[in-house]
Every structure is written in C-alpha cells, then in structure tokens.
Write a protein that binds this DNA or RNA. Structure first.
Length: 226
DNA sequence: CGTTTTTGACCCGCGC
DNA sequence: GCGCGGGTCAAAAACG
C-alpha cells in the first residue's frame, strides 16, 4: 500500500472521530467559555462570581477493561471521585502530574456493562509521555485535538512491523484519542471502542486476545514502562 | 519525606 | 430562588 493510500485510509478511519471532536468542541465552547478563563487564571479557590469555567474540547471513548485506570503513558494524579447518578460506579477525576499540563481525564464504568470503562480526556498534553518514546501513543491525541493529522499517525496505528490494520475490523481503530488507553496488566484485556459504537452488547465486537487491540499493534517491549 | 489517594466540603450551572 | 448534580479543592491519610 502506498503512503497516500495509507493517509486516505487513516483519514477515513478518523472521520467519526473528527465529528465527535467538533461536536465536543462546539458544546464546550457554548457552555463554558468563561469557565476556562477562571480555571486558567484563578486556579485556586479564589472563585469570583461572574466568571465561568470553560472546558477544553473533550474526547470520550470506551475501553473494555477490568481495571479502572488504564495505563496510557502519562502520569496522572487523582483529584476527585464522585458518585454518578443512575450508576452504581463512582467517577474518578485525574489530572496530568505535569504542572504545566492542564489535561484532565474522567474515568467511569459503564452502568450497562461494568466491563467497559468510559474514559473522557479534556485538553491537550504539552509534553511528552513519561514511559513511551516520542512518536508513541500521544500522537493520536495530538491528531485528535490538534487536527494536524500528521503523517506520523499511520505509523502509530500501523507500526512498522505491521503493514495493514489489525484484524479487528469491527472495531473502529480511529478513536484513539490523546492517550490511547491500553492495559498493561497481563490479566486483563482491553480494546478501545468508539463511542459511536456504544452498544456494549454488540456480539460482533472482536476482542483481541491477551493484551488487547494495542497489544496486537505495539511491540510488547514498548509497552513495558520503566 | 515526598508523592499520591481519599473524601467531605464547596462552588457553579442548570432546570424547575 | 431553590435544589440537584457535576466538578474541584484541599487537608488528612496512606503509600513507597
């Protein structure tokens, strides 16, 4: 497959992702324009009235996993946990430990299918991953939020050792947002699912064995953090 | 001892 | 205006 074919295919895979990101962006702008201002300039508990928070573009996706907090190459610090209405599972709030990075993520289990973890990323990392080399997992995030669609993306999805998409054709490979979560725990399997494929009962989903979808793509040596 | 997690309190937006 | 629910803060506890 030639490189232009590669990119066209990747773009095609990304189209639902683009729509999702645009929707999230529009929504966040509409609702919380002033909120971000306060969040940036009044980080602490000085909360003046008349200033609203704004949320950065958010991107959510579902991952089939046994563990709640999935490894994604970044270090996160938990800053809150809340019970969610109509769900028996609490929602956890994480912030990137890099002081200059404002990325947050929310992690919650699907009340319909407890084996599915819903992860929502907000913002964009301004630094490299901790455990992964540059060009690794965070590239897709940059593509998702920066919409640069750098030529590196196909490399990410289909690394050198694999010249075609993984055989999980029923799973949209595109929704690998900033930190494509993957589970390093050997006991669990994970596979990212597009939110547009939210039907957890979809029996057509093909779950890659052992290390999950990413495990099928990323060399195992690369997945091991130091 | 530094870092991370826990958890109750607080703030804010939204719907009624 | 009030209540509810989501999101965040920050002190204390736990952990390595």
């Amino acid at each position: 497959m030639t490189l232009p074919d590669y990119r066209a295919l990747t773009l095609l895979f990304h189209s639902p992702l683009i729509l999702l990101c645009l929707l999230a962006l529009a929504e966040s702008r509409r609702r919380n324009r002033l909120r971000l201002f306060r969040e940036i300039f009044c980080r602490r508990k000085v909360k003046k009235k008349g200033q609203k928070r704004i949320r950065q573009p958010r991107f959510a996706f579902m991952t089939k996993s046994e563990v709640d907090h999935l490894e994604d190459g970044y270090r996160w610090r938990k800053y809150g946990q809340k019970a969610v209405k109509n769900s028996p599972f609490p929602r956890s709030y994480y912030r990137c430990t890099n002081s200059k990075c404002t990325v947050k993520k929310r992690v919650e289990r699907s009340c319909e299918d407890p084996s599915i973890v819903i992860t929502t990323y907000e913002g964009q990392h301004c630094h490299h991953t901790v455990g992964f080399p540059r060009g690794g997992l965070n590239i897709a995030h940059e593509a998702a939020f920066g919409s640069q669609f750098s030529p590196q993306i196909p490399q990410f999805f289909y690394p050198d050792h694999q010249t075609h998409p993984p055989p999980t054709t029923n799973i949209n490979p595109a929704p690998t947002p900033n930190d494509q979560p993957h589970d390093l725990a050997p006991s669990s399997s994970s596979n990212a699912l597009s939110l547009e494929q939210q039907d957890p009962t979809n029996s057509n989903l093909q779950v890659p064995s052992d290390e999950g979808l990413l495990g099928a793509i990323i060399p195992s040596a690369m997945m091991r953090r130091t």
